[in-house]
Design a protein around this nucleic acid. Structure first.
Lengths: 203, 203
DNA sequence: GTCTATAAATCGATAGAC
DNA sequence: GTCTATCGATTTATAGAC
């Protein structure tokens, strides 16, 4: 038990380096955007050199993709947590609206998401990978809406997956505009969501 | 009347150069995006050199802003045209939905809009100018929705300006995702819009 | 006003030492 | 695996000729 941990330290050290790089890169990408963040700045800010980055990621695009993966993971957790609290459907919708309101209040993510999506026009790899993730996000939100509504015995006019597409798109678009204009009213998200999920209840 | 036109030709020539540059820059910006379009490529593609661009625009940012102005102008014209056709409110909504469907089918604009918005994080000038234009777009759409609904004697649940904010944001977000994923369902825009503008009619 | 030439800075990516 | 050094390619912006 004395030297055993040393053997794993090699792999663990690299894992720590990778996580540290993702952590620092995330802050930079969210603060100044993708194009304004050079690979060198990330390395230096993390206390490494460019070589360390290239030995953990194929390049800038894969680094940003790894960052987006951590963000997407947290977003899904937040949405699931809001929609699975112990309350009726109205309470769950309120919880989600509150979560969305906080997220849209400081919407650095959406700006990065759409800026990085522009890279997809010249990078086929980014395009296919981003499409995968967006479809996964829409699917996850779709089944969640489907489950919440059916559990509550409510029938909504719009298809669950379409509602998920609309809400994700609205969140992204609203966040992008909000990150530009701090005075933009964010409550329109909750209002639109309620208009979409306004169901015809059946006992 | 023989040499009189010659005196104006100086100014007219420069105006033509400026328009030509905006026209070519628009195509490039929409095709490959803002960051992938260098000032030099625009100049060469237009049959000029970089000097011609710098004598007509302060730099790349102002050039793109001029391009966005022409696009915004056309967008407003399209929306106004759809909402002022000779029909009842349902027919006008259908016309707008059809217009939006065509625009979102090939949403090159939204991708440029959000990509350029990312520049605002490091350029204060771009930030203030873009905020001006977005607020103008929302205002224009808001008064249009207000007028159309009141003309039809319909009262909608959501405030007109909020509905305009939601629809513009949804269009931008949906377009950004659609430019990434061609299989994305665009009809959700029309469905969301109808859910928002579902009014309680009063004679 | 437009063009040519150039300055100056930045960034991605690679090669080789350790 | 990480670091140092460096190449090569772009880009913005300016200076001076015409």
């Amino acid at each position: 038990m004395s030297m055993e941990p040393e053997r794993l330290t090699r792999a663990e050290r690299q894992a720590q380096t990778r996580e540290r790089l993702i952590e620092v890169a995330r802050d930079l990408f969210l603060d100044v955007g993708y194009n304004a963040t050079s690979l060198d700045k990330v390395a230096v800010a993390a206390g490494f050199s460019k070589g360390a980055v290239y030995s953990n990621f194929a390049g800038t695009e894969e680094l940003c993709m790894a960052v987006l993966d951590t963000i997407h993971e947290e977003q899904i957790e937040g949405v699931v947590a809001a929609f699975t609290i112990d309350a009726d459907i109205d309470g769950r919708i309120d919880a989600f609206a509150q979560w969305a309101r906080e997220k849209l209040g400081h919407p650095r993510w959406t700006a990065l998401e759409v800026e990085f999506a522009a890279i997809a026009r010249t990078s086929p790899w980014v395009a296919t990978e981003l499409v995968k993730r967006h479809r996964m996000l829409v699917d996850a939100a779709g089944v969640l809406i489907e489950k919440v509504t059916t559990d509550a015995g409510v029938v909504i006019d719009i298809e669950a997956r379409k509602a998920a597409t609309a809400l994700l798109s609205l969140g992204i678009g609203l966040g992008a505009m909000r990150s530009l204009d701090p005075e933009l009213d964010v409550d329109v998200f909750a209002e639109t969501m309620r208009a979409l999920l306004r169901g015809t209840s059946r006992t």
